[in-house]
Amino acid sequence: MEKFPNVQEYSFDKQAQVLDLILQIQQKEYNVPITKHDQPDLFIIEEYYQSGKGNFWVALYNEVVVGTISLLDIGNNEAALRKMFVNKDYRGEKYKTASLLLDTAIKWAVEHKIKAIYLGTTPQFLAAHRFYEKNGFISILLGDLPKGFPVLQVDKKFYKYELE
C-alpha cells in the first residue's frame, strides 16, 4: 500500500476517472451547477492543456485518480492554474495530495520559465482559498488578471503566484 499518491502527467486512459472525480466534487460536494458539457476542455485535455508551456497531472493512489491539476499556457510566460481537484478522502496532511499536485505544477512552471501563475475560483471553496494563501498565492482583483486569462462564469475570487 502506497503512503502518498503518485503524481504523473495525464494520459488519455485516465479521462473517465478524471471526469468522474471533477464532476463528483463540483456537483455533489459543492453543488456547483456545472455539467461535463459545460467543460469541453475535459474531452481534449492533451490538445487544450498539454501544449505550449501547459500541462495536466493526475494524482494516483493504487492506480485510482484521486486528484488533478493543470497549467494552461496563456501566453507571455504566464499560466492559469486550472482543474485543481482532490477527492475528499485524500485531502489534508495524511496524503498531502494537494501539496504534491501544486508542487509538481510549480516545479514545471519554474522549469518552463513561467513568471506567474493565476487562478480563479468560486467563493464557496473556502478550504481552497486557505490552501492557496498558505502556499504563497496572493488575492488579486479581476482587473489585475492578464488579458489571456480565461475567466469562468463561476470564478469570483482570483489569485496570483509570482515565480520571478
Score class of each variant (00 low, 15 high):
58 V>T: 09
19 L>G: 02
153 Q>R: 12
147 K>S: 13
8 Q>V: 15
45 I>A: 02
101 L>I: 12
19 L>A: 11
148 G>C: 09
111 E>P: 00
71 L>D: 05
108 W>I: 12
49 Y>P: 01
25 I>D: 04
13 D>V: 15
136 G>F: 03
111 E>V: 08
46 E>N: 11
102 L>A: 08
31 N>P: 00
58 V>F: 01
23 L>E: 11
10 Y>G: 08
78 E>M: 12
82 R>F: 03
42 L>V: 09
130 R>N: 11
25 I>S: 06
96 K>G: 10
116 A>D: 06
67 G>Q: 07
129 H>C: 06
108 W>N: 12
114 I>T: 10
147 K>C: 06
70 S>H: 03
139 S>V: 15
48 Y>A: 09
142 L>R: 13
76 N>C: 08
32 V>W: 09
23 L>V: 10
44 I>M: 10
148 G>K: 07
32 V>S: 06
161 Y>Q: 10
80 A>M: 05
64 V>A: 13
123 P>Y: 12
55 N>S: 10
138 I>P: 00
32 V>F: 09
33 P>M: 11
152 L>E: 14
47 E>L: 04
138 I>V: 13
85 F>T: 02
149 F>P: 04
51 S>H: 13
13 D>L: 12
89 D>T: 02
24 Q>R: 15
133 E>T: 10
92 G>D: 04
90 Y>P: 01
93 E>N: 14
40 P>C: 13
65 V>R: 02
17 Q>I: 06
122 T>A: 12
32 V>A: 12
20 D>P: 00
146 P>Y: 06
105 A>M: 07
30 Y>F: 15
61 Y>G: 09
37 H>W: 12
106 I>Y: 01
70 S>P: 01
10 Y>E: 07
65 V>T: 07
47 E>H: 05
128 A>P: 00
111 E>C: 08
49 Y>L: 05
2 E>G: 07
49 Y>S: 01
103 D>S: 14
103 D>C: 11
119 L>H: 00
87 N>Q: 11
11 S>M: 13
66 V>M: 03
19 L>I: 15
71 L>W: 05
51 S>I: 11
76 N>D: 14
16 A>R: 11
115 K>S: 13
17 Q>C: 06
117 I>R: 03
82 R>K: 13
74 I>Q: 00
58 V>G: 01
120 G>V: 10
80 A>K: 04
132 Y>G: 02
147 K>I: 11
66 V>Q: 00
35 T>I: 07
148 G>E: 04
35 T>A: 05
141 L>Q: 12
160 K>T: 13
93 E>F: 09
61 Y>M: 13
161 Y>E: 07
21 L>C: 10
63 E>K: 13
27 Q>M: 07
113 K>I: 13
139 S>F: 04
67 G>K: 05
80 A>Y: 01
37 H>T: 15
21 L>E: 09
65 V>C: 05
16 A>K: 14
68 T>V: 05
108 W>V: 12
137 F>E: 08
151 V>G: 02
13 D>Q: 14
41 D>P: 01
70 S>I: 07
22 I>T: 08
108 W>K: 09
